[in-house]
Amino acid sequence: MKKEYGQGTGQPDISVNLGGLSMKNPVAVASGTFGYGFEYEDFIDISGIGGVIVKGTTLEPRPGNPPPRIAETPAGMLNAIGLENPGVDVFLNEYLPVLREKGVTVILNIAGNTVEEYARLAAKLKGHPGIAGVELNISCPNVKEGGLQFGTDPVMVKTVVEAIKAECSLPIIPKLSPNVTDIVAIAQAAQEGGADALAMINTLMGMAVDIRTKRPVLGNVFGGLSGPAIKPVALRMIYQVYREIDLPILGGGGIMNFTDALEFILVGASAVSIGTGNFVNPCLADEIVDGLIEYMQENQIAKLTDLVGAAAV
């Protein structure tokens, strides 16, 4: 069943303008947790999702990390996939046209090892309609050569955002790493570089050990922690950035239901992203939209924007 929401239908207004990226509802699915959307079509109408942030895409194909790539942890999981993807050309020529045909709000997540690589990636997007926005993976903790440095050094964050803005007119959304001492300084640098919005947070770097083999569980040794375990960290960081930086925030980190999503909106997220929760419940994005609408109707809130940052004291 297809549902229409919006002004004039008696429904609260849940559309979002995320720094120029127009979303029909505030719930996106996070990069790396939803493939290219096709994988979940048996379970959810992917054209109804606020934004499908596709798998992290690089200039050249990447095979990914050796297994094991995932490990379950208390109320969460670690992953070290290693940016396995077929490369930007395959995405643009094979996947994007199909997604566009289906009317999916596509947000492309791009990752590079150097500033030049990011700029070349961004330049490639010209002439390919159907991309609503670009999320910058400057915080993937799994790629040894550069990934972490970009996201943890304010100067590098500013440089890479500037380089991409020079090549690409789409809304640019850097995804911030939580593995930093001062998240506000990083957000500030992204803003100075010309970011249109911020996505936060990426995974927290962690590890797991197998006591039988006396070895790290993950083939990559370290991996990114996600799931409900990281929700309090995500809320705190979004709260900090919302109070200091004037950019819309796409917030996520362990969202498992609509009340979680509401918490993120109340601390300052204009929209939310569902990551690990998709693995547990592939219909979660729809259920959260329904929950938010019901909540707004019950509490007579006309616009979602009235709730954004309401918890900031």
């Binding site: 790396g32 939803f34 493939g35 798998k55 790539r69 995932i70 996939i81 998709n278 592939p282």
Partner: peptide, 9 residues
């Protein structure tokens, strides 16, 4: 994790 080929885990 996902069981549908999305997470590549």
């Amino acid at each position: 994790a996902c069981g549908v080929g999305a997470c590549l885990g």
